[in-house]
Amino acid sequence: MRNRSNEPRAGRSRAVRLDAFGGPEVLTVQDVPVPRPAPGQLRVRVTAAGLNPMDWFMTADDRTASRFGLTLPAGFGTDYAGVVDRVGAGVTGYASGDRVFGAALSRAVADYVLVESDGDISTGVAHLTPDAVDDRTAATLAIAGSTAAAALAALDLGPDDTVLMGGAGGGVGVFAVQLARLAGARVIGTGSPSTAEFLRSLGSEPIAYGDGLIERIRALDAGPITAAADLHGTDTVQVARQLGVPDRRICTIAARVDGIPAANGATAGPEALQHIAGLIAAGKLHVPIAATFPIDEIRSAVELQSTRHAHGKIVIDL
Results as ranks from 00 to 15, higher is better:
3 N>R: 15
56 W>P: 07
1 M>P: 13
226 T>R: 00
86 R>E: 15
44 V>M: 01
301 A>M: 11
249 R>T: 07
25 E>W: 05
306 S>D: 15
286 H>E: 15
162 T>Y: 01
303 E>V: 11
289 I>E: 15
143 I>V: 14
238 Q>T: 14
164 L>T: 05
151 A>M: 00
197 E>A: 12
301 A>F: 09
26 V>F: 04
293 F>V: 09
217 I>Q: 04
201 S>L: 01
275 H>S: 15
35 P>H: 00
211 D>N: 06
75 G>T: 07
38 A>R: 11
83 V>D: 14
190 T>V: 04
196 A>W: 07
19 D>K: 11
285 L>Q: 09
173 G>F: 04
211 D>A: 15
108 A>Y: 10
115 V>L: 02
293 F>S: 09
44 V>I: 10
238 Q>H: 14
142 A>V: 06
202 L>P: 02
235 D>I: 05
289 I>G: 14
121 I>M: 15
211 D>Q: 09
18 L>Q: 12
95 A>D: 11
161 D>K: 00
135 D>M: 07
107 R>W: 10
53 P>K: 03
270 P>I: 05
106 S>G: 14
145 G>H: 03
300 S>M: 14
108 A>F: 10
267 T>A: 12
165 M>R: 01
280 I>A: 09
88 G>P: 05
204 S>M: 03
185 A>P: 01
3 N>Q: 13
289 I>V: 12
299 R>W: 11
256 R>D: 15
20 A>N: 10
129 T>L: 09
134 D>P: 06
95 A>P: 02
118 D>T: 13
38 A>K: 08
308 R>S: 12
160 D>Y: 08
6 N>Y: 10
69 G>S: 09
80 Y>D: 11
251 C>V: 13
56 W>H: 14
69 G>V: 06
60 A>G: 12
142 A>M: 07
308 R>V: 00
247 D>E: 15
133 V>D: 13
158 G>Q: 03
310 A>H: 10
198 F>A: 01
296 D>V: 12
61 D>H: 09
232 H>N: 10
310 A>Y: 08
265 G>F: 07
5 S>L: 12
64 T>S: 11
91 V>C: 03
74 A>I: 04
187 V>M: 02
225 I>A: 05
139 A>H: 04
192 S>L: 13
199 L>N: 03
41 Q>G: 02
134 D>C: 08
164 L>E: 06
189 G>P: 01
53 P>Y: 03
137 T>S: 09
6 N>H: 12
112 Y>K: 01
219 A>F: 01
276 I>A: 10
71 T>R: 14
204 S>C: 03
64 T>A: 12
176 A>E: 06
108 A>H: 08
271 E>V: 14
114 L>A: 03
106 S>P: 11
